[in-house]
Amino acid sequence: MANSRSGDSVISRVVRLMSAFDRDLPTMTLSGLARRARLPLTTAHRLVGDLVLHGLIERRDPGCFGGCCFRNGYSSLAGR
């Protein structure tokens, strides 16, 4: 079920956030992450907060985030 103006489901938006990370760009700022995932900054902020809470994205240097999926063996999310 979509619950956004764009018609994207929450799962679709989370997958886009997780897929934004790759081996060439393992960390990025929240605004960079929102841009690569094609999400509004406020949406990215809310979803990234939940992903950090559940250990799927790490908060790195101040204002920087990194995907944990490579370390945890879920690299199939990258590059889609």
Rank of each mutant, 00 (worst) to 15 (best):
S75W: 03
C68N: 04
A78G: 11
D50P: 00
V52T: 03
R80D: 10
P26K: 01
H54K: 09
G79H: 12
H54N: 10
C69H: 08
A44K: 01
R38G: 05
H54D: 10
A20M: 02
T43A: 15
L56G: 09
C69A: 12
M1Q: 12
D61W: 07
T27G: 09
D22E: 11
G79T: 12
S9A: 09
R23F: 11
R71W: 04
L39I: 01
N72E: 10
A78T: 09
G67D: 02
S4R: 14
L51F: 08
M28I: 02
V48D: 02
V14Q: 07
V14L: 14
L47H: 12
R16Y: 02
S31N: 12
L17Q: 01
A37Y: 01
S31A: 10
L56E: 13
G63Q: 06
R23I: 12
R60L: 07
G63R: 03
S4I: 07
R59V: 02
R23D: 14
S6E: 14
M1S: 11
R16I: 04
D8E: 13
S19Y: 08
V10I: 15
R80S: 12
G79M: 13
R38Q: 14
R71H: 07
G63W: 03
G7D: 05
Y74I: 09
R46V: 10
G63P: 06
R46L: 07
H45R: 15
C68A: 12
D61N: 08
F65I: 00
S4G: 13
V15E: 05
V52Y: 04
G7S: 04
A2W: 08
H45Q: 12
G55D: 05
H45S: 10
S31E: 14
I11L: 15
R13Y: 03
P62F: 06
D24W: 11
C68M: 06
V14E: 10
L30I: 03
P40W: 10
R71D: 09
S76A: 15
S4W: 08
R35L: 14
L33R: 02
M18L: 15
M1W: 08
